[in-house]
């Protein structure tokens, strides 16, 4: 593998992994916008991610899908996708060439998530891992505990709506699923951007709270005591005028740090992340048994130094991959 202007490139498969500009052949870990770019001639992704990928990149894209674990040969390389536990259909990409195995994790998490399949540890020779939350201050509680916090916050004030901001694809559906898993059955209102993605989760038979788009709520219907999920871009936008003095919250791993919440101006922060926390990253690196680790995204300097100095693992920032 090598690093090119368009991103990580596997010469033997003539394919780029999550390229950031249009290329001939793209292997996609998951359908988040920073990993799946439009305009490639050929896409490869998991079966579960196909719906959202087509919705975001266009119905007519040339998309080949593989089930988790299904092996496929492209050129001299054997390709397979393995669950990353990040969002619906998210995958680690395993590429084997001449007996040498590389795994690109994409984004992943180790905590259980009722809205998508669990992370599958894959052993390899070379691991390329993300490091978004690679600091020991980041430590996630399980989703059920956070779901109880969200529920208490929402139910504590029935006189006004509770606006919970979260990423429209992945986090929002996880919240709907986590809340269902702790035994709630109330209807939740969704911002349009959340609604379009949630449909794909419903077709994938993920158990979630019932929901309805805000746009379908009658003008004279009271929104007091309702939970509303919306993407962060809607915070302080004109869309918010629809709600009378709401209480606001944000669900994200970044909410672990007080200053990060204060800066964004949310009243409450719920620490709920779809990335691996510090322990999760280290556990994954160790379980992979990789002899060489490359680190990308976020706090890569910290993770590289820790792996080298404390764990004695050969680690390098991905930017230094020649």
């Amino acid at each position: 593998m090598e690093l090119t202007d368009s991103g990580l490139y596997c010469r033997r498969a003539d394919a780029w992994i999550d390229p950031h500009r249009p290329v001939r052949r793209a292997l996609i870990t998951h359908a988040h916008a920073d990993h799946a770019k439009a305009g490639c001639e050929e896409y490869w992704a998991t079966t579960n991610s196909a719906g959202i990928l087509r919705q975001r990149l266009g119905q007519n894209i040339n998309l080949q899908t593989l089930a988790y674990g299904e092996q496929h040969r492209i050129g001299a390389a054997t390709l397979s996708f393995h669950s990353a536990g990040h969002v619906l259909g998210s995958a680690q990409i395993r590429v084997e060439v001449d007996g040498e195995v590389w795994v690109v994790t994409g984004d992943y998490k180790r905590s259980a998530d009722p809205s998508c399949s669990a992370f599958e540890p894959v052993s390899c020779d070379v691991l390329i891992t993300e490091a978004t939350f690679a600091l020991p201050i980041y430590r996630w509680l399980d989703g059920a505990a956070i779901a109880h916090d969200i529920c208490n916050w929402w139910k504590s004030d029935t006189t006004r709506p509770s606006l919970l901001f979260c990423y429209a694809f992945g986090k929002a559906q996880r919240i709907l699923a986590e809340l269902a898993a702790i035994g709630l059955d109330d209807e939740v209102l969704l911002h349009g951007a959340v609604e379009t993605v949630t449909r794909h989760y419903r077709s994938a038979k993920v158990a979630m709270l019932p929901s309805r788009p805000v746009s379908e709520v009658a003008k004279n219907e009271s929104l007091a005591g309702r939970l509303v999920l919306a993407p962060p871009s809607a915070h302080r936008s004109s869309w918010m005028r629809r709600f009378q003095s709401p209480q606001t919250g944000f669900a994200s791993g970044w909410m672990a740090v007080r200053g990060a919440r204060r800066r964004r101006g949310y009243e409450r922060g719920f620490v709920l992340s779809d990335h691996a926390d510090w322990q999760g990253l280290i556990q994954t690196v160790k379980e992979s048994k990789a002899k060489k680790v490359f680190v990308t995204h976020g706090q890569n300097d910290v993770l590289v130094r820790y792996l080298k100095e404390v764990e004695g693992i050969d680690a390098t920032p991905l930017s230094e991959l020649s």
Partner: peptide, 21 residues
């Protein structure tokens, strides 16, 4: 390691909060 403590501190920006995290 001390350096890791310091990395956390400069990320959080406050000793009291770094410790509680």
């Amino acid at each position: 390691p001390e350096w890791l403590f310091n990395e956390c501190h400069s990320h959080v920006g406050d000793s009291a909060e770094t410790i509680c995290l």
